[in-house]
Design a protein around this nucleic acid. Structure first.
Lengths: 230, 230
DNA sequence: GGATAACGCGAGCGATCACTCGTGTTTGCC
DNA sequence: GGCAAACACGAGTGATCGCTCGCGTTATCC
């Protein structure tokens, strides 16, 4: 979670506690400030096209200061990506609870989609950083893990509720497609301006998910009825 | 369509025919070869992270040769993007025909989706080039035009067939969401390995579209029935 | 208040990249 | 065959970028 990669101890001594680098409160603030700036610039220009000097400039800080907290450009993206992934894990950890798993389908869709949408709307850098083809490999790995974890939970949820129970291959296909379709709709939602437009897009995406999953869940009637706006 | 941006005539004379640059067959072949190489490398590394020397190397050609046909790196991406967009326009021009517009919903989904999927599977550089946040602005503009054009045809199609007729805002929302959901599913399909896996993903995406659009088209029964695999 | 170390700076260094240029080779045309 | 022009080359050039280093400032601990 912290910037542990930056240890100045290149020596062979201190094998146990590797120079614990007491960080002052000011330093922690600078790190957050730099990561926020990096998120903005990465989001606007992508990883490769972003220069470290541009990040420092955005954070109103000199390049030297930036490199006091991060050993290189990649470490900035890794730390930022790590924090975002951690937040995402925390958010979705509270989603797949036994109580939610038993909800009727429309409420279940609300319970699963809303936190994800909320997170991605408040953290646009997440999609920008995870989706680029030029991000450092480490981020791609962590993102793959997160993706697999989310997919597993979706698969478990659908597998537990689907009527009749699908085969393993069918279950994989359904979970993969549900997730992919959600990501497509999410991109539209994030791109929409905040306000009623975005709210309408959210409701529309939920219609898609509901109509797709209702037959899977053995609730064909839900495919036609419209979700009452809460 | 051709590499028109590359005109060596910086002089003030020849206002009409600006140095027509007779190109030999060999040159045309080189251009295609360079664009193919650029497509591969852009696809693998993204636009910014790709060096012109890497494109030349991929095409088994010296950097100087590359710059005989393209004035700069951006022009390579623009020409490649332009050709892909042109192909895409040709493909979808044959999709929204009056005959197809009258098809029953399942066949309509087949007729619209299949060419798009086919094109994107054979030209993975298209998505890579259009979707990146670091592509030159010119490409983004052309892509926006194409996107708006496609969206307009989808909107017209849904507007003509929807029962009961939706309001203008509803129609916009439905067309936007249908397109966004399709793009999400398309990403899954392109990422899937060729063969039965991909075919199953295509069938699954069609289920999503069918179940979403059936109520819009006033065919609620189609939401439940599975599409027979052809 | 003094010692120590974290913090902050910005000019500058080496590497890399987009791009050029001088020269030699191949092709099309008479 | 001979000439002009298109084609091909690859070492080299200026600019940019990631990153460093030396030095001055601020916070913490006794």
């Amino acid at each position: 979670m912290f910037v542990n990669a930056y240890r100045e101890g290149l020596g062979t001594d201190m094998p146990e506690h590797p120079a614990p680098r007491r960080r002052q409160a000011r330093g922690e603030r600078r790190i957050s400030q730099l990561l926020q700036a990096a998120a903005d610039v990465f989001c606007a220009n992508g990883y490769t096209a972003t220069s470290t000097n541009a990040i420092a400039r955005e954070a109103r800080v000199s390049p030297g200061t930036l490199y006091q907290y991060f050993p290189n450009k990649e470490a900035i993206a890794i730390e930022l990506g790590g924090r975002l992934i951690h937040q995402m894990r925390e958010a979705h950890g509270q989603v797949f609870t036994p109580a939610n798993m038993a909800l009727p389908l429309p409420e279940l869709v609300d319970a699963v989609l809303d936190p994800m949408i909320e997170f991605n709307c408040s953290n646009p850098a997440f999609l920008a950083l995870m989706h680029g083809s030029d991000v450092p490999g480490r981020i791609a790995e962590e993102h793959d893990e997160l993706h697999a974890s989310l997919l597993g939970q979706v698969r478990a949820l659908i597998g537990a509720r689907a009527v009749p129970a699908p085969s393993a291959e069918e279950l994989d296909r359904i979970a993969d497609m549900a997730f992919a379709v959600f990501k497509g709709g999410l991109a539209l939602i994030v791109a929409a301006p905040e306000g009623p437009t975005r709210g309408a897009a959210v409701a529309e995406l939920k219609k898609v998910m509901l109509r797709y999953l209702a037959p899977v869940f053995g609730e064909p009637e839900a495919a036609v009825t419209t979700t009452p706006t809460r």
